[in-house]
């Protein structure tokens, strides 16, 4: 609305500042600067994920704010072991999120089963078997810095997204 109001007044065109951009990059810029994440912890990795949110690493400076509901969130960080019992719930949560939505798989467990890949009869061997993953963060547990790096990669991905092509 602010921009439209200005258009009525031709003077402000001469004195004000202009920024040229495409709708696409404007939208992408908006999206990548406020990636709201779902506050959802699964196992040990969730502790490092909490540490990334807390004072020393301060993930919120990237506009990442934890939301309690999947309906508010843009990214879901799968932080921990996904068991078979939990897999259906994870899928449900993912489906409840509005588009566009992104998934960060944090830690070996959600990447591939981690320490439980061989004998874990009840562990899903990689969360990508139930939901599509955008960024994989390796480690057991990944350091908070590694998670931040994963987030920056996700921002890059969002930055180069195209509206017309999927």
């Amino acid at each position: 609305m602010g921009l439209l109001n200005k258009l009525d007044n031709i003077e402000s065109f001469e004195t004000g500042n202009f920024v040229f951009s495409t709708v696409e990059s404007l939208l992408n810029w908006g999206r990548l600067s406020s990636i709201w994440q779902m506050g959802f912890g699964l196992a040990c990795c969730a502790i490092e994920f909490m540490a990334a949110n807390a004072s020393n690493f301060d993930m919120m400076r990237f506009g990442v704010i934890p939301r309690p509901s999947p309906r508010h969130s843009d990214v879901i960080i799968i932080s921990g072991t996904v068991t078979l019992k939990m897999a259906t719930r994870v899928k449900r949560l993912y489906e409840q999120m509005p588009d566009p939505k992104y998934v960060i798989s944090m830690g070996s467990c959600s990447n591939c089963g981690g320490p439980y890949w061989e004998h874990g009869y009840h562990v899903l061997k990689g969360v990508d078997r139930v939901i599509p993953v955008d960024v994989y963060v390796p480690g057991c547990p990944p350091r908070p810095e590694a998670l931040l790096e994963g987030l920056i990669r996700l921002r890059d991905k969002v930055r180069h997204q195209s509206l017309s092509k999927a």
């Binding site: 196992a43 921990g80 019992k85 719930r89 439980y116 061989e118 004998h119 009840h122 562990v123």
Partner: peptide
């Protein structure tokens, strides 16, 4: 319970 059952006892056997 059981959403985070990670088979501890099974692992210790192996």
């Amino acid at each position: 319970l059981g959403y985070l059952h990670r088979c501890f006892e099974k692992h210790t056997e192996a």
